[in-house]
């Protein structure tokens, strides 16, 4: 019963975090519920849930925008006689422009250089990946099934017998946006296959 509740708590986490760490956290729950105490694990899980949604998933931006809009309406009610401004304008301003994904993204994957090239042709996204394989050779492959929504991008890439997906999002910074995400294998083709690796790239 408590295990099912903990599983539900994990399910409430943002998808990216849940997919990446959910199974491991459940495994630790199975191993340590008896020694750590179920209450401590639930308290820790709830704190993690709050941190993930508030600090990591950028929900705070929408909350601040919403609160700002609400404050604007209230202030207008107090000080201005006339129609109050609507709150949804402030809230939608935090959504990233998908065109920001266009261009070349340079980063490193397991200490080796990697480059993603993304371009929108009409309504379709096209792209290529360039990277250095463990033997030092430079490799390229087309990006497939590219889907851009808001500040997130999902795509698929196939290199030889390795089939991988990339899920990432734009993270604003003082020196421009970064593309942060994870490259994950969808099939166990070989031992050398990247099972999971984080990728951080900067707009070139």
């Amino acid at each position: 019963m408590t295990r099912a509740l903990y599983q539900f708590l994990l399910w409430l986490h943002p998808p990216f975090f849940r997919q990446r760490f959910g199974e491991e956290m459940l495994w630790i729950y199975d191993e340590s519920a008896a020694t750590h105490g179920v209450l401590a694990l639930f308290t820790d899980g709830l704190a993690s849930l709050a941190r993930q949604w508030v600090m990591r998933a950028g929900t705070w931006k929408l909350a601040v925008a919403g609160a700002g809009g609400l404050l604007e309406i209230l202030m207008a009610g107090f000080f201005v006689m006339g129609p109050a401004p609507t709150a949804h304008v402030a809230a939608t301003q935090s959504i990233e422009d998908p065109a920001q994904f266009s261009g070349t993204w340079k980063g490193s994957l397991r200490s080796r250089p990697i480059e993603l090239v993304l371009a929108k042709e009409g309504t379709v996204w096209r792209g290529e990946i360039h990277f250095q394989s463990p033997d030092g050779a430079l490799r390229s492959a087309p990006l497939e099934d590219i889907r851009v929504a808001g500040d997130s991008v999902h795509l698929r890439v196939q290199v030889d017998d390795s089939d991988m997906t990339f899920s990432g999002k734009l993270v604003p910074g003082t020196l421009g946006s970064r593309l942060v995400g994870a490259l994950q294998a969808t099939a166990d083709a070989s031992d050398d296959l990247i099972s999971y690796s984080t990728l951080q790239a900067f707009h070139a």
Partner: peptide, 25 residues
């Protein structure tokens, strides 16, 4: 005592900054 939520929240951050990496199979 580190709980799994705190551990993986921090591991996520450390993986993003390439301070820690997952071992290959």
């Amino acid at each position: 005592k580190l709980g799994p939520g705190t551990l993986y929240d921090n591991l996520q951050k450390l993986l993003e900054h390439a301070v820690v990496e997952e071992c290959s199979r």
